[in-house]
């Protein structure tokens, strides 16, 4: 029988350790499919962040290194500048990219590094157990904000895509989600565009994927999707912010 759909060769078949309802698996699948479709999985290197995404290190079949917490964009800078023929992308969560790594994030974008940054924003720290993130919504409970995020104490959710959109150098900024098949397709296209930009030598591309964290949100996968659509996507509206 003809196989009309198979798992991407960029996943080696090892068990993914992500929780039910988590969208990391979808994101890595899409990245892998794009790498294969562009024929560049043999020249790709991922700079993986610290956090839940680290669980992917045993399942990806392409080259990767794990960077210190928040430093992926700096490591990607060094790698890409010294190996311009390698397709270099970072894969980072919100704690990594938007909190501890904000300086590295902004400066790599501002230098217009020819890299692709994949930002997974689920508004919470996953691996460490549900602490407040820079992107945690107002009123959303976290283990370090048990009464919910209070703007008087914690400030407001950081909108990283919009912050990067203030800079001159980046060429492509889009916020997407994986909440339904249509948006999954849009996410795949965004990743493809980010990688193609790099192959074309255009410069810095930023793809923010707004996702859920059922485990640390304390919601079922189904209710998480609803929360994602009704709350997260309201705070972080989807769309292309820049496409030069």
């Amino acid at each position: 029988m003809e196989a009309v759909y198979t798992r991407t060769n960029t996943l080696n078949g090892n068990l993914l350790g992500f929780c039910p309802g988590c969208m990391h698996g979808t994101a890595f699948k899409l990245i892998g499919e794009v790498l294969e479709e562009l024929g560049i999985d043999n020249k790709a290197s991922c700079i993986l962040a610290i956090g839940c995404c680290g669980l992917a290190q045993e399942v990806l079949s392409y080259d990767l290194a794990t960077a210190p917490h928040g430093r992926a964009a700096a490591a990607a800078t060094g790698l890409k500048r010294s190996n311009p023929d390698t397709l270099v992308f970072t894969y980072q969560g919100d704690g990594d990219l938007a909190s501890i790594g904000l300086a590295e994030t902004i400066h790599a974008a501002n230098r217009g590094e020819n890299i692709s940054v994949i930002f997974i924003n689920n508004g919470i720290y996953g691996m460490t157990g549900g602490q407040m993130a820079p992107t945690t919504l107002i009123g959303m409970k976290a283990t370090t904000a048990p009464g919910g995020r209070d703007p008087k104490i914690h400030g407001y959710p950081l909108h990283i895509a919009e912050i990067i959109n203030q800079l001159t150098a980046p060429v492509y900024i889009e916020r997407v989600s994986c909440n339904n098949p249509a948006n999954v397709r849009k996410t795949k296209n965004a990743i493809k565009k980010a990688f193609q930009n790099q192959l074309d030598g255009k410069g810095y591309s930023f793809v923010e994927i707004v996702t859920s964290c059922p485990t640390n949100w304390g919601l079922s996968p189904e209710k998480s999707l609803k929360f994602l659509e009704e709350n997260m996507m309201k705070e972080f509206p989807l769309g292309v912010l820049r496409d030069k």
């Binding site: 700096a74 490591a75 060094g78 790698l79 010294s82 190996n83 390698t86």
Partner: peptide, 9 residues
């Protein structure tokens, strides 16, 4: 960390 990345390459 840039050196980490370049060295990694």
């Amino acid at each position: 960390n840039m050196v980490y990345g370049a060295g990694a390459g």
